[in-house]
């Protein structure tokens, strides 16, 4: 019932300390990881699917735990647990999307940043940020920078080894657009998605992001175009989306590729129906 690896453990309190430490450990030939909720790191390490020998806990870093809303934007620290994020109630689409991740007790541990940066490829917490004007605040030993979320997220957050995701920010007016999010599972009400979608309607156009359809989450404007075309039937819409996909649809323990096509077709219809009459 143990993890075989021996690891060093650090609990820095500032971004600077954390990033310098990470750099130093790499220089020393170590394999450090930034650690927040730990749920994924512990499960992967236990089953030898992740190699590490140093843990840098970021849950004592003030900036990573901030949650506030100012005039222009909402800021959410990467080390906030999903439960804490939900309690802020700042970003309803995000709330509803992450409320479907794992289960309630696990959401007390899983963090916003951990879900987005995880190896487990669903990363559903990224979906709302992909379809809104959002930013990722990223630190390394050279300093702290903000990047448009979309520009830096391609299948996963394009971090260099030493980068630390500190915060997520979203433009305040973006959180008021009509939205819809739904998670389809193989069966029952807890667990990984067969397909999860998050969608917003902005200037009469739907923007839809997916998880579980391919082995990474994504938002694709070409797919939005098909979904937004009112002349298409459900079947045509599905074909359009499948044709626009850059990667094959998954076939795994949750469902075969063919079945995912079937679920996707219904799901696209459900999304379109959900926005009927919604004004933006």
């Amino acid at each position: 019932m143990m993890i075989a690896y021996d690891v060093d453990y650090y609990n820095p309190t500032t971004i600077e300390e954390a990033t310098q430490l990470f750099h130093r450990l790499v220089e020393e030939g170590k394999k450090p990881v930034y650690y927040a909720g730990g749920t994924e790191i512990i499960t992967l390490a236990r089953s030898e699917r992740l190699d590490l020998d140093a843990i840098i806990n970021i849950k004592s870093i003030h900036e990573c735990l901030l949650a506030y809303s100012d005039e222009n934007e909402i800021t959410l620290g990467a080390a906030l647990s999903l439960t804490q994020v939900i309690k802020t109630n700042f970003f309803p689409l995000l709330n509803q999307t992450i409320a479907q991740i794992a289960d309630q007790t696990s959401r007390n541990q899983i963090t916003l940043g951990g879900n987005i940066c995880g190896d487990i490829f669903y990363r559903e917490a990224a979906l709302p940020f992909l379809i809104t004007e959002s930013k990722a605040v990223i630190a390394n030993r050279t300093g702290i920078k903000e990047y448009p979320f979309k520009s830096i997220f391609n299948q996963k957050l394009q971090l260099s080894n030493e980068d630390l995701l500190v915060q997520l920010k979203v433009k305040k007016n973006e959180v008021n657009f009509p939205f819809y999010t739904v998670k389809k599972r193989k069966q029952w009400d807890v667990g990984y998605p067969l397909i999860t979608v998050a969608a917003v309607k902005k200037k009469e156009q739907l923007k839809v992001a997916f998880s579980g359809l391919c082995n990474f989450p994504f938002h694709d404007v070409n797919i939005d175009k098909r979904i937004n075309d009112p002349s298409l039937t459900a079947k045509e819409r599905l074909d359009g989306v499948l044709n626009a996909l850059s990667s094959p649809v998954l076939s795994d323990v949750h469902g075969s590729m063919d079945y995912r096509h079937f679920v996707l077709k219904n799901l696209l219809q459900e999304v379109v129906d959900a926005f009927k009459g919604a004004k933006t």
């Binding site: 069966q187 029952w188 009400d189 667990g191 795994d252 323990v253």
Partner: peptide
């Protein structure tokens, strides 16, 4: 076996 864990096994909750 592709799903030797509770997470992907399909048990009622």
């Amino acid at each position: 076996i592709q799903n030797p864990r509770i997470r992907t096994y399909g048990s009622f909750r």
